[in-house]
Nucleic acid binder design. Structure first.
Length: 657
RNA sequence: GCCGGCUUAGCUCAGCUGGUAGAGCAGCGGUUUUGUAAACCGAAGGUCACGGGUUCGAUUCCUGUAGCCGGCACCA
């Protein structure tokens, strides 16, 4: 007998060998019909499988969020069956559920076309209608290998061969079709439902290794209901509207062109945004005790050989040659340059920690397929800094950095989801003792800052572990912005030293750190986070003064002049156009505030302020408007200083908002 | 770099099976002085990404190249 504890806390006994379906049926016939899966002590089981024992028992239906992954996984199986029915000779490999859907990787000589997707989708619906029972079978390992080899499924045979020896080999059968799979699965293909859609076609390497064969991957999305599918597709459309490339064009921020692949032409508006971000970060670094430097763009090959980058990254460096036969490279990173400044003259322990920052323009020859708008470019500017310190200062410096970065991210309106601790990769420099120490130092530092990092196994740089900041934007997408990495290697290679209290030479440790990452990418993230509707302090154009009639032109000019004098970025629109037209145009260009002046306002010395996204208006005297907007437009760090110094105008704005 | 797709006016897009292209918006020239998301009229604007081939004839079919888009791999 086994004891099952139900979600309501009640307990019942059942015969050994009872299945989830039997239990469901014993409760209600209708429940049996709706049951898809069983959850027993946290693990999922097929509905028809004999329960391996007692425990916390739950019946999952279509409505259970936990059943969704299985629906998706089954959708991938149904897709694989459809593909093999339509395209005999195609081999199946693996097909998991993923976020929002599923994929399956197929091995096939001729690639699939977009037309094939429609056919496959159609056949999938037929298979769902067939309502094939899905049955779990346990196979003998050797027989399984022999079987899959005999039907030409070499990849499946390879998967079984590589499974640990004690692993139970299970095959799931749906009608004529079967697949090696750990399960669990739904009771029959009907339960996959029809709220799915094949979305994209892609190449993917066998086992994720580019030296292996390339397989054909088909992606799909699947949901418990038609409504969920619709909602998902709608979400995709919304996300597309925020695309920084689209908004960048609409707001005239930047462009790129063929002759400069992965290089950005920043237009005036875009550069304004850049300067706002840069000067804000610079103020924060100044306040946090950093010094700022600038190092050469191009350095001799010998330099990069010394730093070790030439050997490892030569294919990704922009190399040039001079008339005199020197070989030079554009800097792909700032670190070795910073070490040169550290090494210039003698350093004392009193100089440490030395926090050396640079808005460093770097060039890397990224693979063409990696380029993506502002998010991945070949010429970028890092908000880079290196903290040279003693080993016993690592924890303190890392913790301080976490606090600084967190504050800056939140000022930019980005919410932190978590911090990742990326640990030793397979290919790495240094002993296991070194990695043990380095990883525990980073962990301790994070905890000191009050953060429990999520461990990303094997994701560290080859020379050290790192902490990465994973931020969440306004629509819930994750972005990695900001990192801190421990480095014992570079100071050694470039022979950085300081004189300790004991009068002897010591080796400093370097902490590589960035808060934005690259300014290009960070601006891309900001654009998508705000969908171009920036808060006042970030908006390239903060106020547009728009006239209704030419009678108001003179006052509009005066208003603009006073707003500018208060530090605001202002445009004036005196064109002979209807106010409706002007409002529409500037709203589409995402101007946060439109100050409308007509004859009435001009006579009374007032402006009518209209906020982006709302259709109301606030009528203020010009002086009040200047004061209110100027304090609202203060970057968050300056606003905090203003509050501390008790500025009345800031208080007024706080009330208003 | 690899797999698939796309590339037509400044932008967004039409153009069935081959007969050298069309709209809206923007821009330009006029008219309109306007009250909170598109006033009206007019003229203009294209080596249909680039190269080669098939054809009497190619934006359309084939092929090569580039860029971009979606993935994969990469990301010091």
């Amino acid at each position: 007998m086994i004891d099952l504890i139900f979600p309501d806390g009640s307990k019942r006994q059942f015969e050994d060998g009872v299945s989830g379906r039997d239990v469901a049926a014993s409760i209600a016939k209708s429940l049996e019909k709706r049951a898809l899966l069983i959850k027993l002590d946290g693990a999922l089981y097929d509905l028809d499988r004999a329960l391996p024992g007692g425990g916390a028992f739950e019946i999952l239906t279509r409505e259970s969020p936990e059943a969704l992954d299985t629906i998706r996984h089954d959708a991938s199986h149904v897709m694989a069956q459809a593909v093999q029915e339509l395209f005999p000779g195609t081999q199946v490999t693996i097909g998991p559920a993923i976020e929002d859907g599923f994929y399956y990787d197929f091995a096939r000589e001729t690639p699939f076309s977009l037309d094939d997707l429609a056919k496959i989708e159609h056949r999938m619906k037929e298979i769902v209608d067939r309502d094939e029972k899905i049955v779990r079978e346990v196979w003998d390992r050797k027989e399984a290998i022999a079987h899959f080899k005999s039907i030409g499924e070499d990849y499946k045979a390879e998967i079984i061969t590589d499974l640990p020896g004690d692993e139970v080999i299970t095959v799931y059968r749906q009608g004529e079709w079967k697949d090696l799979c750990l399960g669990p699965h739904l009771p029959s293909t009907k339960h996959v439902g029809k709220a799915f859609k094949l979305t994209k076609l892609a190449g993917a390497y066998w086992r994720g290794d580019h030296r292996n064969a390339q397989l054909q991957r088909i992606y799909g999305t699947a949901w418990a209901s038609e409504a969920d599918l619709e909602a998902y597709l709608h979400r995709l459309e919304e996300a597309e509207k925020r695309d920084h490339r689209k908004i960048g064009r609409a707001m005239n921020l930047f462009h790129m062109q063929e002759e400069g692949k992965g290089m950005v032409f920043w237009h005036d508006k875009g550069l304004t945004l850049w300067r706002i971000v840069e000067s804000y970060v610079r103020r924060r670094l100044d306040a946090a005790g950093y010094i700022e430097v600038r190092t050469p763009q191009v350095l001799d090959r010998v330099f990069w050989e010394k730093s070790g980058h030439w050997e490892k990254y030569r294919p990704n460096m922009f190399v040039c040659e001079t008339e005199e036969g020197e070989e030079l490279s554009l800097k792909p990173m700032n670190c070795p340059g910073h070490v040169q400044i550290f090494n210039f003259g003698q350093r004392s322990y009193r100089d440490l920690p030395m926090r050396m920052a640079e808005f460093g323009a770097c060039h890397r020859y990224e693979p063409s397929g990696a380029l993506h708008g502002l998010m991945r470019v070949r010429a970028f500017t890092q908000d880079d800094a290196h903290i040279f310190c003693r080993e016993d200062q690592i924890e303190e410096e890392t913790a301080r950095f976490i606090e600084l970065a967190s504050s800056i991210h939140s000022d930019f309106g980005l919410q932190r989801d978590h911090i990742a601790l990326a640990t030793r990769p397979d290919v790495r420099a240094g002993s296991d003792e070194f990695w043990d120490k380095a990883e525990s130092q980073m962990l301790a530092a994070a905890r000191k800052a009050g953060v429990e990092p999520v461990i990303y196994e094997g994701d560290g740089a080859f020379y050290a572990p790192k902490l990465d900041f994973i931020l969440k934007d306004a629509i819930g997408r994750m972005w990695t912005c900001g990192t801190i990495q421990l480095d014992y290697v570079l100071p050694e290679r470039l022979d950085a030293t300081y004189i300790g209290e004991d009068g002897a030479k010591h080796r400093p440790v370097m902490l590589h750190r960035a808060i934005c990452g690259s300014l290009e990418r960070f601006i891309g993230v900001l654009i998508e986070n705000y969908a171009g509707s920036f808060p006042l302090w970030l908006a390239p154009t903060q106020v547009v003064v728009a006239t209704i009639t030419s009678d108001a032109a003179e006052f509009a000019q005066q208003a603009a002049a006073e707003l500018r004098a208060a530090g605001l970025r202002v445009e004036v629109d005196l064109r002979n156009e209807k106010i409706n037209y002007k409002i529409r145009e500037h709203s589409l260009a995402k101007a946060p505030v439109i100050a409308v002046v007509g004859r009435r306002e001009a006579e009374e010395g007032k402006v009518a302020l209209r906020r982006l996204g709302s259709d109301g208006q606030t009528i203020l005297s010009l002086a009040e408007a200047v004061k209110a907007l100027a304090s609202e437009a203060l970057p968050p760090d300056l606003a905090r200083t203003a509050i501390m110094s008790g500025s009345a105008s800031v208080g007024a704005v706080a009330e208003e908002s």
